[in-house]
Design a protein around this nucleic acid. Structure first.
Lengths: 171, 171
DNA sequence: AAAGAAAGTTATACAACTCTAAAAATATTG
DNA sequence: CAATATTTTTAGAGTTGTATAACTTTCTTT
């Protein structure tokens, strides 16, 4: 028998699409999926059969499509990978939304559980650690434009410390 | 005609393997490639024909394999993507080498030029910016274990500034 | 409820990639 | 240099995912 618990990149894309459609409407129709994925109707039918056989979706010919528990769980995992990558590309690397979205979409299938967890922690950390934060992002952007101007490091650090102290006082 | 300048993930893997083999020896043989990639000999033949048709390698049946200029350039680009991801996973996210290697191998095909450049800059920056550096990595590791202990931020920043000043004096 | 529209499925074909088994070419060595 | 071993290729088949075209089912509307 074919693997029951693993999905190809392609099938993960279908599952993800179904997840998002089901989140908006009650259930998904083949046509919605085809439109969202820019794919032919008949390709959807094949994908549905495959996802159904593996127990990820509830589906019978001509019927509406919903996710099984297993399908929901896997879909959420895929979405988590997608969103984490997109967030990292935008918030840390400063990429544009469209670029981040497209690249996350392609890379999401290949990221391992271990690296994913680390990346989630990292993005979380970047947001709460004062050593990073907004100012730091600006510094990174400047670095990207002009390279490292090492003379400013002390000033940069002092500034960072001052800002932090000021914010602490306000709270 | 089939696309001449783009390669599937699979063909990029072959090209990358050939690049590494050619770097060690003068030229690659089908057997070397098959061994390195854990793939059947006959699969290599097909890949070689395809890469040759598209102008990435110099190849004729029963002949040794070398890279064309185009092949070398593309291979270097793939390797750059691979190495950048691997470095990021290890140096910034603190992943183990094997994990970093395996994941880079799978993700390298999907990263866009824009995100790649940003990631290269980012890894470079992480290495030169005192606000990050070793201490910061330790902080991140601690954060991963214990979560954010926000009371220590001022101390963390002061410490960082002090260390920087001390190092400046030594130079 | 019947006609027409819309949606979904099947049949078929193709492209990419893989494998096994057998045949052909090349290399090695006694 | 001929026998043997190794390497490479071909032939054929299977898998996955895609599309077009034709057909069937379901929905909509009068």
């Amino acid at each position: 028998m074919a693997e029951m618990d693993t999905l190809s990149s392609s099938m993960e894309d279908y599952l993800e699409a179904i997840y998002h459609i089901v989140a908006r409407k009650q259930a998904a129709r083949a046509k919605d999926i085809a439109e969202r994925m820019n794919v032919n109707n008949s390709s959807v039918t094949g994908a549905l059969r495959s996802l159904s056989e593996k127990g990820f979706i509830n589906y019978a010919p001509y019927d509406l499509i919903t996710l099984t528990k297993k399908g929901k769980e896997h879909a959420r995992y895929v979405v988590r990978k997608h969103d984490t990558l997109k967030e990292f590309f935008m918030k840390v690397l400063g990429a544009q939304e469209e670029e981040a979205e497209a690249t996350a979409c392609k890379m999401e299938h290949a990221i391992s559980p271990d690296i994913l967890e680390r990346l989630i922690r990292f993005v979380e950390f970047v947001e709460v650690c004062p050593r990073i934060g907004d100012e730091w992002m600006k510094t990174f952007e400047k670095f990207c434009r002009e390279g490292m101007a090492s003379e400013n490091c002390e000033q940069c650090l002092s500034q960072c410390l001052e800002t932090y102290k000021e914010q602490e006082e306000k709270e």
